[in-house]
Amino acid sequence: MAEAANVRQNLQNVPSIFEISAAETLDNLIYPALSKIFDYFGLRLDFKLWGNLRVREELSPLLTWILQYLYLRNRASSFGESFYGLQRTATGTGELLTRPQQFTSATLLTFLPYIERKLRSRSAQHEDTYAWESYLINLFHAYNASKAVHTFAYLIKQASSHSPLFRAMRLTLRYPSEPPQEDKWTYIFLKMLEVLAFFLQFIQWWYSNDQRRKVGGTLQNPEAMQKRDLPEEVKQTLPQIGKCPICLLPLQTPTACSVSGYVFCWKCIISHMKEHGTCPVTSYPISLDDLVRIYET
């Protein structure tokens, strides 16, 4: 009887893969949401280090790390895991995180997604990438495949942890048998941060691709320029049909801007977008998602 009760208690303490996935999703919202807020206010590191080396980096990863470490130290769980009432414990003993495990967990939670996002962004923008960057991208592919295998094994109850990182650190996610012990002000502060989770979700939704396209779609597209209404000297400077409005040469790898409808060379519009963030003809804000390659048949 006692054995059966113990088994039941252990099973009740094991979260489902859906709860774990929800916690991971919330953790993954922190960095992009903070990035949008900081970009809006223009908050980022930008200073000259030495020589021609200049540091231009976001503050979001640093603040994300501090937030995650605060939760791991006080509640032995990440921001998302704490929101869903989960706790990181040692697989064999059930003990809470040690100080090195707290530091390692916060670092992996913050910088692995950050590095992966940066590498994929450089690759998507067809920037010149180094060999080690391609190697790292392949490592992330292998890690994601390994995580999928671990998730499936956890789903069929053949693994004690859902992630290879948890297995490497000998940790697992469980529901705590008793609420965490913390002072009143720490409890109030962390609760206020959890309320911000809804704000983070709203920020991410607002800046999602679908919503951005809806907002962009409400912009009135500019009418085509009528040559007869322009002075003769201006007409001579306009690009001819089949030529790029930026370089005024025949189109190379034609790419359309979905916001304005104009067609440019791929390299020309990418360079202009990185520098100005707008369509060069209409000055509407654009991003990489607004560029569409045109394939001739």
Rank of each mutant, 00 (worst) to 15 (best):
M1K: 07
N6S: 06
V7E: 14
R8I: 10
R8N: 14
Q12A: 15
F18L: 08
F18M: 08
E19F: 09
S21C: 06
A22C: 06
A22M: 12
A23R: 00
D27I: 08
N28D: 06
N28S: 13
S35E: 11
K36Q: 05
D39S: 15
Y40V: 04
G42F: 00
L43W: 04
R44H: 12
G51Y: 02
G51A: 02
N52I: 07
L53Q: 01
V55G: 05
V55D: 08
R56V: 10
R56Q: 10
E57H: 15
E57Q: 04
L59M: 02
S60A: 07
L62N: 06
Q68S: 01
Q68N: 02
Q68M: 03
Y69I: 02
L70V: 03
Y71S: 05
L72P: 06
A76L: 13
A76E: 11
A76N: 09
A76W: 07
F79K: 00
G85T: 01
G92N: 13
G94T: 07
L97W: 01
L97P: 05
Q102K: 08
Q102M: 15
T104K: 08
S105A: 13
T107D: 06
L109A: 08
L112I: 14
Y114Q: 06
I115W: 02
R117Y: 04
S121P: 02
S123M: 09
E127V: 07
D128C: 15
E133M: 09
E133F: 02
E133D: 04
S134M: 13
S134T: 14
N138M: 11
F140A: 06
N144E: 14
K147P: 00
A148T: 02
T151K: 10
Y154P: 00
L155T: 12
L155S: 15
K157E: 14
A159N: 13
S160V: 14
S160G: 09
S161M: 12
H162T: 06
S163D: 03
S163K: 14
L165P: 05
R170K: 10
L171F: 09
R174T: 03
S177K: 01
E178S: 15
P180W: 00
Q181S: 15
K184C: 15
Y187V: 14
F189C: 15
K191Q: 14
M192G: 15
L193K: 05
V195Y: 07
V195N: 07
L196M: 11
Q204R: 12
Q204S: 13
W205E: 08
W205T: 09
R213C: 03
G217W: 02
T218M: 06
N221W: 09
A224I: 09
M225P: 00
M225G: 11
Q226D: 08
L230H: 04
P231E: 14
E233I: 15
L238K: 04
Q240Y: 01
I241K: 15
C244Q: 00
C247D: 03
L248H: 10
P250H: 01
L251F: 03
C257L: 01
V259E: 01
G261H: 02
Y262E: 09
W266V: 01
W266I: 00
K267L: 02
I270W: 08
I270Y: 07
S271F: 12
H272N: 05
K274C: 02
E275F: 12
H276Q: 12
H276K: 05
C279W: 00
T282E: 13
S283C: 14
Y284E: 07
I286M: 03
D289T: 09
D290K: 03
V292H: 08
R293I: 09
R293C: 10
Y295G: 15
E296N: 09
